[in-house]
């Protein structure tokens, strides 16, 4: 699994071993109001790493820092042995990271095809590669091929989510940052999403998953972190963790109403 036979030129697979490390990150949206206070975590290849925490704990912010959307005040982010703390999102994409944000991120007035093409923006100068990637995508999601000429905004919620997932995987990323994939999605689709995540893990990808759907997330997790008020609380392999988890999540449940 680890020894990849993919060609070196394929940026997305050139480093299947890349683990993602967040080291003592302090970050926030306004100076002096830190949302994260020295958060550290590590996501390994071929593992699903899950981050849990109550509303407003800073889970989404963790992903934004990892993806370069929020510049940290202190600390570092590494992928493999490369420090990427200051790289912009496009450079992280080229290193094999990909990010699925919370909420609906399709461009409603672009067609399905155009949305997918935007997923290959970093390969805009490499037509052959784009065409190949699109072909692969349509082979995997034939529905999208039929819908390609439709405006993304006219799709059902489930189809839009599918489009997002397909777009996410187009550049063949190795490190996946996924924020609340099950919010606002029909239950049967949620199962499919988790199946996808497991498959990506089995393909050797590094998956970092933020989720409020605690049970489902933990059931596919290999390693779990919990975050409270922007600080690490607990972490451990799932098996070790399951007992204590119930207790911790129980506390949050009393704090907030989880969906």
């Amino acid at each position: 699994m680890i020894g990849s036979s993919a060609p070196i030129s394929d940026a997305a697979t050139n480093n299947t071993r890349s683990s993602l490390v967040m080291d003592k990150i302090t970050a926030g949206y306004h100076a002096d109001q830190w949302v994260l206070n020295g958060v550290s975590l590590r996501a390994e290849p071929e593992r699903v790493t899950v981050v849990l925490g109550p509303n407003g704990a800073g889970k989404s912010t963790v992903l934004k820092v990892l993806y370069g959307l929020v510049a940290p005040h202190a600390g570092s982010v590494r992928v493999g042995d490369q420090d990427i703390t200051r790289l912009p999102p496009e450079a992280r994409l080229a290193l094999g990271l990909a990010y699925l944000p919370q909420g609906h991120s399709v461009f409603p007035s672009l067609t399905v095809q155009e949305n997918l093409e935007m997923g290959l923006w970093i390969y805009r100068h490499d037509r052959a590669r784009r065409e190949e990637a699109l072909e692969r995508c349509f082979a995997e999601y034939p529905v999208l091929k039929d819908l390609r000429a439709k405006l993304a905004g006219s799709l059902s919620g489930g189809q839009q989510r599918l489009l997002e997932v397909a777009r996410l995987m187009l550049p063949n990323p190795t490190v996946l940052l996924i924020d609340e994939p099950s919010v606002g999605v029909a239950p049967n689709l949620v199962d499919i999403l988790y199946e996808h995540i497991v498959r990506w893990r089995n393909q050797g990808k590094t998956v970092l998953l933020v989720d409020q759907n605690v049970e489902a997330a933990v059931s596919i997790a290999d390693y779990v972190y919990t975050l409270e008020s922007g600080r690490n609380r607990l972490d451990g392999p799932r098996d070790e963790f399951e007992g204590r988890l119930r207790e911790v999540v129980g506390q949050w449940l009393r704090l907030d109403v989880l969906p």
């Binding site: 496009e90 994409l93 944000p101 461009f107 409603p108 007035s109 672009l110 923006w121």
Partner: peptide, 11 residues
């Protein structure tokens, strides 16, 4: 349509 989502895709 969305500056943020475009940036996420590397634009």
């Amino acid at each position: 349509q969305s500056d943020l989502y475009a940036r996420i895709l590397g634009v």
